[in-house]
């Protein structure tokens, strides 16, 4: 018995070496994951930093090379110059008008559609979903050029409302999918309970489902706003005098100075960053990974 008790101690040594090797490999694997994650983050963050950095630098600093990592001194000259440039405020107004119109039409259509997709098992439900997504599969060119022709014929060319209709067509599939995932997260049992306790179906929707879905619907509305705000191709094609901000900037890009470009990029970037930050939870939800 005592002889046997000594033996396991001899066996410990090779075992220990194997353990160390496994631990080393585990650490290496973890390090690799972190390195990839950091590289991915830099890929996104460096351009954003460059834009922000340059937007707050003096025009001289922008033209200098190599560029400083921090703006020194911090200056609002570029941004003020950009905002006061010819046509910027008008384009900004157009952009807001188009984005808000898109948001309103898109949300009004997406709420009933999203509800139907979330709640009802109707024939062809999956086909409808696929068909809506397929709109996104076409390049915008394919949609925008024939539409431009049609709009010119109808005398609707170069109007913010027209562009808003175009943007609605582009954003609606995403909006519907987000809204339907929001409705799907409200248990149907709530509606049934409301109906048992005296509600008509429409009342149950209004008193129970809508209040619970509202934050999510607001999030999808913001997403719609951002999509419209950032869209430039259709905006270029469907407007000539009433350009939106990105279209206006793009149109004037080759005639502008570097400080103007950086200030413009920063100006376009900020609303998107802020909005996406607030709604990111709902965007994750759309793909099924719920983090509450």
């Amino acid at each position: 018995m005592s002889a046997q008790a000594v033996q396991p101690r001899l066996a410990v040594l090779p075992n220990e070496r194997e353990r160390q090797r496994a631990l080393r490999r585990l650490r290496l694997r973890r390090a690799a994951v972190y390195i990839v994650a950091v590289l991915l983050a830099l890929w996104i963050l460096l351009p954003i930093w460059l834009i922000t950095n340059m937007a707050f630098s003096t025009p001289t600093a922008v033209r200098a090379f190599p560029k400083a990592f921090f703006p020194n001194p911090i200056s609002l000259d570029s941004l003020t110059f950009f905002i006061n440039s010819e046509g910027i405020l008008r384009a900004l107004g157009n952009s807001v008008l188009v984005a808000v119109t898109t948001l309103v039409i898109s949300t009004l259509l997406a709420v009933p559609a999203g509800y139907a997709i979330a709640r009802y098992m109707f024939r062809g439900r999956d086909a409808v979903r696929l068909l809506m997504l397929s709109v996104r599969a076409f390049p915008i060119v394919v949609l925008a050029v024939p539409l431009a022709v049609i709009f010119i014929r109808l005398g609707m060319y170069d109007q913010p409302v027209t562009l808003a209709l175009m943007h609605t067509a582009l954003t609606l599939p995403t909006t519907i999918l987000v809204v339907s995932s929001v409705f799907a997260s409200v248990p149907y049992e709530f509606e049934e309970a409301a109906q048992v306790f005296g509600c008509r179906p429409i009342q149950a929707f209004a008193t129970v489902v809508l209040p619970l879905a509202l934050p999510g619907i607001a999030a999808s509305a913001i997403l719609t706003f951002v999509l419209s705000w950032n869209e430039v191709f259709a905006a270029m094609l469907l407007t000539s005098t009433n350009r939106t901000l990105p279209a206006h900037i793009l149109y004037n890009l080759d005639k502008s100075s570097d400080p103007f470009k950086f200030a413009a990029a920063f100006f376009m970037l900020v609303p998107t960053m802020i909005f996406i930050f607030f709604i990111r939870r709902y965007l994750f939800n759309m793909w099924g990974s719920i983090n509450k």
């Binding site: 248990p187 049992e189 709530f190 049934e192 309970a193 409301a194 048992v196 306790f197 129970v208 209040p211 619970l212």
Partner: peptide, 13 residues
Amino acid sequence: ISMVFQNYAIFPH
């Protein structure tokens, strides 16, 4: 009628 549901269906808002 009144009903008690399996997951309670208490309105969270």
